[in-house]
């Protein structure tokens, strides 16, 4: 098997990508910020920072703290609101040499439907990620993604406004992520992003104050990878729609864990803060790995750690 003939392409809903790599929402600006450091034509898609119906100043500072094998953040969805965003920002996204996925957050079902409808109407936006799981704007950490009924309501309302691919981003801060995933699928989600950050907190022992202005934050990075791999594994057993796996991916080995657990694609967020070359390196090494394992296509290995369960994909030349 030749490295160059390995098929790394993925289909997520109606979104067809040459590479199975998303850049995580909120970590990558609009892609432009990273363009000097990485060839954007060699990544699958950029997921934009979430936009809301109204402008948001975001959380007070400090917004970041480094923690073992990761970091806590509490940005608080700073964004200019959908009106300004459509008028000033979205047209620039057409220049990106990769797919651009919009991300929408909100505080009511109506917020989501309104913002998704307006954003999805733009040609520059190829798909929409529903961020129903941001832990940093929620009351006591409760988000839409923590409740199966609210998840279903938001997804159904967003679904009614657009035919574009809807990716629903799930929260790990729940007891039964598979149950939430089933609700999202039944309500019309095309794909699931698994997982958002894990709630966390850090305290300065000199000042006796929380180290984040928002008190609590979302933990990302390798510290949460095993939590994310398990979440993908459990969700993959529960739904038939594709999964974009994410949580602490920095190497091809990390990405492979997610593919084997059942992710069709992976998303890199915090890893870009370690080295912006990581996404392209993962793609290159993924092709080498698959060639070495005599796999013509990435699709052949998706979910292969899920022994005995019916994979949503049936692949040509599947030898597994």
């Amino acid at each position: 098997m030749n490295t160059h003939s390995v098929d790394l392409s993925v289909t997520i809903g109606k979104l067809e990508l040459p590479y199975p790599t998303f850049m995580g929402s909120g970590c990558y600006g609009s892609g432009e910020e990273f363009a000097p450091f990485v060839d954007l034509s060699r990544i699958g898609a950029v997921v934009l920072k979430s936009v809301t119906r109204l402008p948001r100043l975001g959380n007070p500072t400090p917004r970041l703290v480094h923690t073992p094998a990761g970091m806590l953040n509490a940005i608080g969805l700073q964004n200019p609101g959908i009106d300004w965003y459509l008028d000033h920002d979205v047209k620039k996204f057409a220049e990106r040499p990769c797919a651009v996925v919009g991300s929408v957050a909100g505080f009511s079902v109506d917020d989501y439907a309104y913002t998704v409808e307006r954003l999805a109407a733009r040609d520059e936006i190829k798909a929409i990620e529903l961020n129903i799981s941001c832990p940093n704007v929620a009351h006591e950490g409760e988000t839409f993604a923590c409740d199966p009924r609210l998840t279903a309501n938001v997804v159904r309302a967003a679904r009614a406004t657009t035919d574009k691919t809807l990716i629903v981003k799930l929260s790990p801060n729940v007891t039964d992520i598979a149950g939430i995933a089933r609700e999202a699928e039944a309500a019309g989600a095309d794909a699931l992003a698994v997982i958002n950050t894990v709630r966390g907190m850090a305290i300065d022992v000199e000042t006796w104050r929380p180290r984040l202005g928002n008190v609590t934050g979302g933990l990302s990075g390798p510290a949460i990878r095993p939590i994310a791999v398990l979440a993908v594994y459990e969700v993959a057993r529960a739904v038939k729609i594709p999964i974009v796996g994410q949580g602490g991916i920095e190497t091809v080995t990390d990405a492979l864990e997610f593919f084997l657990a059942g992710a069709s694609a992976v998303s890199i967020g915090t890893g870009n803060f370690t080295d912006p070359r990581i996404p392209v390196r993962i793609v290159d090494e993924l092709a080498e790995y698959l060639a070495r394992r005599n796999c013509a296509s990435l699709r052949q290995i998706v979910g292969k750690a899920n022994v005995g369960f019916a994979n949503p994909y049936q692949f040509e030349g599947d030898e597994g």
Binding site: G29, E33, R63, L64, H66, T270
Partner: peptide, 15 residues
């Protein structure tokens, strides 16, 4: 300030 991306992508280091 504590930076995450350092290139303007994450809005973590604002003033």
């Amino acid at each position: 300030e504590t930076f995450a991306c350092g290139v303007g992508g994450c809005w973590g280091c604002v003033v």
